[in-house]
Design a protein around this nucleic acid. Structure first.
Lengths: 199, 199
DNA sequence: GCTTTCACCATGCGATCGCATTGAACGCGC
DNA sequence: GCGCGTTCAATGCGATCGCATGGTGAAAGC
């Protein structure tokens, strides 16, 4: 075999450029040529690693998902062993809020992709699956917290849906600048208090 | 003056076509030609009523906002005079959830516009203003409900932000099919119960 | 009746799009 | 050292884009 090249690394490099373009010029500015220019490579090379634009988009969407997943995992790991359920759920969902520059840009891209994926079921499948897993995770935590004496309320899976929706909504408000980040966090913490008790 | 034509009606006709295209083929399929074809007019006419594509987009966005506003007003009016505060807030926010075909399509368009308006401050200004008004409306209702004995909680304006965010998030989940509409409604009603008491 | 004014259409320009094609450069197995 | 397959750059095709242009037809004003 000739020239050994790390395919995945190259694809990720290109996907990064795509996200940079999408974050500060909008998804409609994402074209093979623009992405190639942003990545500092030829457009021929982009085509070499992604046969179609859709393939490139889908891959980039996957990268965003993977980044978020990794950040969540890191956040949970940084919590240590004997952390409270509230702290775990808090750590998980806080990673979904666009509170710093990185996550803000990522949120912008995610929003653009959300609109892009609407009506492309094959593209939306993976994120939907991730969301379902997350809901189940949160629901499970609520169940065990309730068993340990946390105040009751709606059905756990329903409460999880509500909490996820609240976080999504807060993220949206931050991205569209309808709400300062710290207000969003405080709203989020209030809801956490109601579910798991104040700490 | 020659031929009298209702400018606003023509523009609305075109905006309607734009929304139909955006709803079922995505915002990136919105072009002067496609919109014109969908509206059954020549592309020259579209250009006659909108000097630039951006002007057309902005107008269409305004139409969506106006539709939502009108629907809210109708919903509130249908409530009659002596309706409870809970019923008023419920009527307002229920109009924001994409519960039927019409509102679902509208939600899709709104989502696409949200991504479009990101990074176009002049486009995003009007929706931001509307959102602020709505938050103030809800906050005010919460204040008067509290004065009349409703259970306390977070600061009214903060509670309003939370409720708005929840509705936004639920809308998102419905649009991306992460959550069936009736579950979203039930989640929403639970939150209403917590704020204003069950009825 | 002639001009003016507005509504509308047809055409096309320059740019950009996604993508296919072609071929050169390069490192490996033989 | 020679063929071979991978990597990547160059080029161009056909389609489509936003938009400018110039023209036509019809109603209103004098």
């Amino acid at each position: 075999m000739p020239k050994k090249v790390d395919h995945h690394a190259r694809r990720t490099l290109i996907a990064d450029a795509l996200m940079r373009v999408a974050a500060d010029r909008g998804l409609e500015a994402v074209s093979l040529r623009h992405v190639a220019a942003e990545a500092g490579v030829s457009s021929g090379m982009v085509q070499h690693y992604f046969r179609t634009k859709d393939e490139m988009m889908t891959f980039a969407l996957g990268v965003v998902g993977e980044r978020i997943r990794a950040r969540i995992e890191r956040g949970l790991a940084a919590l240590g062993e004997a952390s409270s359920i509230r702290a775990q759920v808090r750590a998980l969902l806080l990673q979904l809020l666009p509170l710093d520059k990185t996550r803000w840009a990522e949120g912008r891209v995610a929003l653009a992709f959300l609109a892009y994926a609407a009506g492309r079921p094959s593209v939306a499948a993976k994120p939907a699956e991730d969301a379902a897993l997350m809901r189940e995770f949160v629901a499970e935590r609520i169940r065990t917290a309730r068993a340990a004496g946390a105040p009751g309320g709606a059905e756990p899976s329903q409460a999880a849906t509500a909490l996820l929706a609240l976080v999504d909504g807060l993220g949206l408000q931050i991205l569209s600048e309808h709400c300062p980040p710290d207000l969003a966090v405080s709203v989020f913490e209030d809801r956490l208090d109601a579910l798991f008790g104040r700490e």
